[in-house]
Amino acid sequence: MPTVVNDVKSFAAERAWGARDIAEIEGATVRLHWTNEPYRWHINDGPEVFVVLDGAVRMHYREGGQENDVLLRAGEIFVADVGDEHIAHPVGEARILVIEKKGSV
């Protein structure tokens, strides 16, 4: 049966980065996250697709030993490949769709 997620803008979790599982596709998870706090610096063991659905997120990433950042607004996407060190800092509350290898950090 198809699934409709129509409460994205009102979705909230009990803690920062709490999530609702939306789907699993061939070893990858699709999760809706809510947060109002930064995550932590990390490197995924597979690609990660990060879609801002509501709010804004300043994504910091390291490239060639230098820290960079980009402000992502609703409808914008950040893709981290294997080995890309990054951290997400929401600007207030944000709701993010994350697609990544199941069990990734």
Results as ranks from 00 to 15, higher is better:
A80Q: 08
P38E: 04
G55D: 09
D45M: 10
V51L: 08
V8I: 14
V105H: 02
D7G: 00
I25Q: 01
V79C: 00
G64C: 12
V8N: 05
Y61H: 13
V4N: 12
N6K: 12
A88V: 09
V4R: 13
D81A: 06
N36M: 06
A74Y: 03
E100I: 04
T35K: 01
A94G: 00
I96L: 04
R20F: 01
G27W: 07
D69S: 13
L53D: 01
E85L: 01
E24S: 02
D54N: 14
V4C: 06
D21M: 02
D84L: 14
M1W: 13
V52I: 01
G27I: 11
V5Q: 04
I96Y: 02
T3S: 14
V57S: 03
N44T: 14
V70L: 06
V49Y: 06
G46T: 07
V98C: 11
E48Y: 00
L53G: 10
R20C: 03
T3N: 15
D21T: 03
D84Q: 15
R95N: 06
E85A: 11
V49H: 09
T35H: 10
R62P: 09
A74I: 07
V51G: 08
A12Q: 13
P47C: 12
L97Q: 10
G46Q: 02
L71M: 10
R15N: 10
T35P: 00
W17F: 06
Y39M: 11
A13W: 06
F78Y: 15
W41Y: 01
R95D: 06
F11K: 10
R15D: 01
V30D: 05
I43T: 11
V105C: 04
V82I: 13
I43N: 12
M59S: 11
F11T: 11
S10V: 08
K9T: 15
V51P: 00
T3M: 14
A94Q: 01
I22G: 03
N6E: 13
D45F: 08
D69M: 08
K101P: 07
D7T: 09
E24V: 01
S10L: 11
L71R: 12
N68M: 06
T29F: 08
D84A: 15
F78N: 10
N44I: 08
F78E: 08
D45K: 03
E67D: 15
A23L: 02
V4G: 09
V91F: 09
R95E: 04
G103F: 03
E67P: 05
P90L: 10
R40Y: 04
E76T: 07
L71Y: 05
R58F: 05
F50V: 04
V57P: 11
V5T: 14
N36H: 11
F11Q: 08
A12Y: 04
D81K: 12
L53P: 05
A56W: 14
E93H: 14
G46Y: 01
V79Q: 08
A56C: 13
N6A: 09
V8H: 00
D81E: 15
S10F: 04
S104Y: 00
N68W: 10
M59L: 14
V105F: 08
L71P: 03
V51Q: 12
